[in-house]
């Protein structure tokens, strides 16, 4: 299971990375915005994308749209972890095909539940 973590704050990337490792996901990579993340996704075989929304360069929502528009990535599960809590934004992310939406600040338990849900749906 290879996971790409995209967030412009390195501390948040480290937190997510540590939480994922605690859940048994040791194979992670990091990117600081959509522009750097997209070629990584296209080049390496990632099984999950965890992305922030608000980033300089390409934002998370646009990264999600690019992923869904890319034939090789269309089925990649995407989990959004963001401070954006407006209803219309959550709806927008859902319509763009997000697989899970976590608002910051979040707990390790929330991350675990959302990941389990995503994998359940993929397997089911």
């Amino acid at each position: 299971m290879k996971i790409l973590i995209v967030d412009d704050f390195s501390t948040m990337r480290r937190i997510i990375k540590n939480l994922l490792r605690d859940l048994g996901f040791n194979n992670t990579a990091e990117a600081d915005d959509g522009t750097t993340a997209l070629p990584m996704l296209q080049g390496g075989k990632f099984d999950l994308l965890v992305t922030d929304w608000n980033m300089p360069g390409m934002q998370g929502i646009d990264l999600l749209k690019h992923v869904r528009a890319d034939e090789s990535l269309v089925k990649l599960p995407v989990l959004m972890v963001t401070a954006e809590q407006k209803r219309e934004q959550i709806v927008e992310a859902a319509q763009a095909g997000v697989n899970g939406y976590i608002v910051k600040p979040f707990t390790a338990q929330t991350l675990k539940e959302k990941l389990e849900k995503i994998f359940e749906r993929i397997e089911g």
């Binding site: 809590q85 407006k86 709806v91 608002v103 929330t110």
Partner: peptide, 15 residues
């Protein structure tokens, strides 16, 4: 401005 959700439970409900 605009309506926001108040935490993860609200997000889950909305979704």
């Amino acid at each position: 401005g605009g309506s926001t959700v108040s935490g993860q439970d609200d997000v889950d409900d909305l979704l």
